[in-house]
């Protein structure tokens, strides 16, 4: 029973006439893996975008990070505040090495630290190595993301979100999409492992099997509205969920 790390109150996003996120209020508690599910176009990615400050002109409502109102702050400020994310479309820095990808995200650069680093370069954060080890990326640290497999690239994306010293909660946008069954299981186990170590995460995914297996608590969005919330067991029997995912391969287990 952790306290809420992230909470939204009446968060809404409009694109012209389309309400992509409609008055969503939910909480993500400390040390938990919170799932966010919903059919295509339900507004899951838009929800993450709004929470992390990428839709300043389209969103309204309130976002609380450890109780503090952070709505309206710009993305990099939110990142420093501890709200980090991955992308459905990966969005890695394709032309620098994996290590540099993590390096960039690992520490905040101020005028002073930038100057100092310029004068005495190559003082790299131990934190980066830690995360590289954690995710088994050590061997490919000096490669560029475009040389890697999709699965490895996904991990680099997670690593980049994980590495920030200040990270309080991680929002993962379909990190397992495109992985096969074995990889997905492995990936889910890794996530569970991280959460058990004390990380707080939000997992957006289509794979009901994965979400039901690894999450502690699940919210479902349909057409931008929060239509169901509950533990995996609740969700398995929820008529809303069954309706939304009828015939979806993931529901059977």
């Amino acid at each position: 029973m952790g306290d809420p790390v992230l909470a939204t109150r009446s968060l809404s996003v409009r694109f012209g006439g389309l309400v992509a996120v409609d008055d969503v209020s939910l909480e993500c508690r400390r040390g938990r893996l919170t799932g966010l599910i919903g059919p295509n176009g339900a507004g899951k990615t838009t929800f993450i975008d709004a929470v992390t400050g990428f839709l300043p002109n389209n969103s309204k409502g309130s976002v609380l990070l450890e109780g503090e109102e952070v709505f309206g702050r710009s993305p990099h400020v939110l990142s420093h505040a501890g709200l980090t994310r991955t992308w459905q479309t990966l969005e890695l820095f394709d032309d620098i090495t994996v290590r540099s990808n993590l390096d960039v995200a690992s520490r905040r650069l101020t005028v002073g630290s930038a100057l100092l680093d310029y004068l005495r370069p190559r003082q790299r954060a131990a934190r980066v190595n830690e995360v590289l080890d954690l995710l088994n990326l050590g061997d490919i640290a000096e490669r560029q993301p475009r040389e890697l497999s999709q699965g490895q690239r996904k991990l680099v994306g997670v690593g980049r979100a994980l590495v920030a010293e200040s990270s309080k909660i991680l929002l993962l946008d379909e990190p397992a999409a495109g992985l096969d069954k074995a990889e997905t299981d492995w990936f889910g186990a890794q996530l569970r492992h991280l959460v058990d170590q004390g990380y707080t995460m939000v997992l957006v995914d289509h794979d009901m099997g994965l979400v039901l297996n690894v999450c502690d608590y699940i919210h479902m969005l349909v057409f931008g509205q929060l239509t169901a919330s509950g533990t995996p067991d609740d969700m398995r029997n929820d008529p809303e969920v069954i309706a939304a995912y009828l015939g979806h391969s993931g529901v059977e287990p």
């Binding site: 993305p75 990099h76 920030a164």
Partner: peptide, 8 residues
């Protein structure tokens, strides 16, 4: 976008 999300 990714840079901003990474705190840059």
């Amino acid at each position: 976008r990714a840079a901003a999300a990474a705190g840059v």
